[in-house]
Design a protein around this nucleic acid. Structure first.
Lengths: 194, 194
DNA sequence: GTCTATAACTGGATAGAC
DNA sequence: GTCTATCCAGTTATAGAC
């Protein structure tokens, strides 16, 4: 095996552990997740995880950071999507509820609500707070209001409610069928419409 | 102190511990809650809790049972409330979101989503499943549909979505202001309307 | 009745064998 | 590289002092 191939194999293992950890953390939160669960999910021994990550906390923090970046870009891109503001928000909703991103959003939720969350992560969360998320959506929502697609009222308040509803569903989504709520997007968006 | 008074004092202490435990369990779930936290919340030593409840599990189970009964009666009574079906569902929503019951609903949620939940409790949950809850609301919803107050569509599906939204909000409610969502009931009920 | 001390156990993290 | 054995800290539950 050449040096390059070795590095590749190491990286792959790291990603494997990260995938496993994301899956478990998203469902169980940081204290509900045991290193043995992550190891089992990744198909390795418990001790080996520590050759790739120095602690459970480090692993958790890294994943939250990636999740925040992922969520951030999804939201930043919304303005570039085709269609009316209504269609743009609908696309964002769908994106959030779909399997892949769901785990990231859940992880962020876990980080937000647990108090075992490391201080380092708390600081990250403050940086990318949901206030900023909403701030980015406001121009689109206001445009939709002017076009008569959305209901009247304080954009910040309405978007906060809407995003809370979505993440509330995601939390529970884990225990119902995959992507179940995606079929309910039209009903959910009635919160935003006239 | 007479015998009667002693019994009363004992009962009071039991209730004190139960109140404390409900508060902590609702926020942190069964494994996130340490007996020391409950004891601190109740203002007693950790060891003393075990003079009143034989285990953490027993305490948790008892509380879930009471929560289920509480939720059950709240729902069973809805038909007797004054007003149209719309007003009845609105009253139920408000009731669910208000502080007192919120803790009970949160506890049930914790019991539902955690897998450290004792088998005994899992069985209880199956008995009072949310399917039955919805079943009880269907007649009212159908009546509202006939009166033109609610949107068309499968009552079971719509009510399931609605209740999921409400409990999703409750889970997060703990971390925002008390009773914040109560002010948003009208927006939420747009999910049910035409 | 209530507290403090402690036994038994669980889980995070390290060390050493292969 | 990976696993098994082990250390140490924190938790449940009990026992014994006041």
């Amino acid at each position: 095996m050449t040096l390059k191939e070795q590095d590749y194999a190491q990286d792959e293992r790291r990603e494997e552990i990260k995938r496993a950890a994301l899956k478990v953390f998203a469902r169980k939160g940081i204290s509900g997740t045991k290193m043995s669960m992550i190891a089992a999910e990744a198909g390795i021994s418990q001790g080996l995880s520590y050759r790739y990550f120095s602690s459970k906390e480090e692993l958790f923090s890294l994943l939250v950071q990636e999740a925040l970046e992922e969520a951030q870009t999804a939201i930043a891109n919304i303005g570039n999507l085709p269609g009316t503001p209504f269609e743009q928000l609908k696309a964002l909703t769908k994106n959030m509820l779909e399997e892949n991103h769901k785990q990231y959003f859940l992880l962020i939720q876990q980080a937000h609500t647990s108090d075992e969350t490391p201080v380092k992560v708390k600081q990250l969360l403050d940086q990318f707070s949901s206030k900023d998320t909403i701030e980015q959506l406001i121009p689109i929502f206001v445009k939709g209001q002017e076009m008569g697609e959305f209901c009247e009222g304080d954009p910040h308040r309405i978007l906060f409610l809407y995003l809370s509803v979505i993440s509330g569903l995601m939390i529970q989504d884990v225990y119902t069928d995959e992507n179940y709520w995606v079929n309910e997007i039209d009903s959910l968006m009635k919160i935003l419409s006239k």
